[in-house]
């Protein structure tokens, strides 16, 4: 959507619930951070971006100084004996939207940012945080929030908490030998998470027009957007700057903008 975008364009649109997965180093965080901000600019509904990668990165791309925005342990209570349900849940009276309001960091363009993967106070703490996360995702009003996930790089638990929640999955793939092999694995794993028509590949760091074709033929995924290798974008990332602020006209950013349109077009 261009600057003429307004609520009327998207009044009937269903907010996105999109999980971005891919090999470590493929460019997930760089794409997700930029994507979330461009989505927030294009659409009136609020955007929550969930970082479940334990490694830092997304916050910098968003343009935040911090790399940690977790849910306070005090926001989560343990199930009382004899009670049903998950072991931990949000404190009674604290709704999912309240929790986002209280604990998410507000990034530029109004994007809300929450970090889940970091170990803060040991394993007990991460369990609390995981449960709270899961509850926030499932209880945020469906017709209001875009929820965008930056998922961990490995294939150990690539969709933890997202199966049954994500309405679309984007596999970020660089068309290198390792990237393509990894892409095949993610494609296979994602097949049990979303319907085939909700599963897409984004080519990252594309160096030739052949890259997209390679990705399609080797992974069987449909390429929804191809993002070129872009020195200016990469330099901003390397410096820890938000590419969207540092190099707003970079070619990679234009393609991520197209990705926002493409996903909105396909999914709504």
């Amino acid at each position: 959507m261009t600057s003429t975008s307004s609520a009327s364009d998207t009044a009937d649109a269903r907010p996105l619930r999109t999980a971005f997965v891919g090999k470590g180093g493929a460019g997930k965080s760089a794409i997700v951070g930029t994507f979330a901000r461009l989505l927030a600019r294009a659409d009136d509904e609020p955007v929550l971006v969930l970082d479940s990668d334990p490694m830092p990165g997304l916050a910098f791309t968003l343009g935040l100084e911090i790399d940690d925005a977790g849910i306070d342990d005090a926001a989560v209570v343990e199930r009382a004996e004899g009670e049903e349900g998950p072991r931990f849940r949000l404190r009674p009276g604290l709704s999912a939207e309240d929790a986002v309001e209280a604990y998410a960091t507000v990034a530029p363009d109004g994007v809300r940012f929450l970090q889940i993967g970091n170990l803060r106070g040991g394993v007990g703490s991460i369990m609390r945080s995981q449960h709270a996360f899961h509850q926030i995702k499932s209880e945020l009003p469906r017709n209001r929030w875009h929820v965008i996930g930056d998922l961990p790089g490995g294939t150990r638990q690539p969709f933890l908490g997202w199966a049954g929640f994500a309405d679309s999955v984007v596999v970020v793939i660089e068309a290198s030998a390792k990237g393509l092999l990894s892409g095949r694995r993610f494609a296979k794993l994602a097949g049990s998470v979303v319907e085939p028509d909700r599963l897409f590949a984004v080519v990252s760091k594309a160096r030739s027009s052949d890259d997209a074709q390679q990705v399609e033929s080797r992974t069987g995924l449909r390429v929804i957007e191809s993002i070129p290798w872009d020195d200016a974008f990469a330099d901003a990332e390397r410096e820890g700057l938000a590419p969207l602020d540092a190099v707003p006209d970079a070619p990679a950013i234009q393609q991520i903008q197209s990705l926002v349109h493409a996903l909105q077009g396909v999914l709504t």
Binding site: I126, M127, Q130, T155, R156, Q157, P158, F159, L160, G161, W162, A163, G164, R185, K188, L189, A190, S192, V193
Partner: peptide
């Protein structure tokens, strides 16, 4: 040594 194929295992 390892590759896990369960996309959303129950335990974090």
């Amino acid at each position: 040594v390892s590759q896990i194929d369960n996309p959303d295992p129950g335990c974090p």
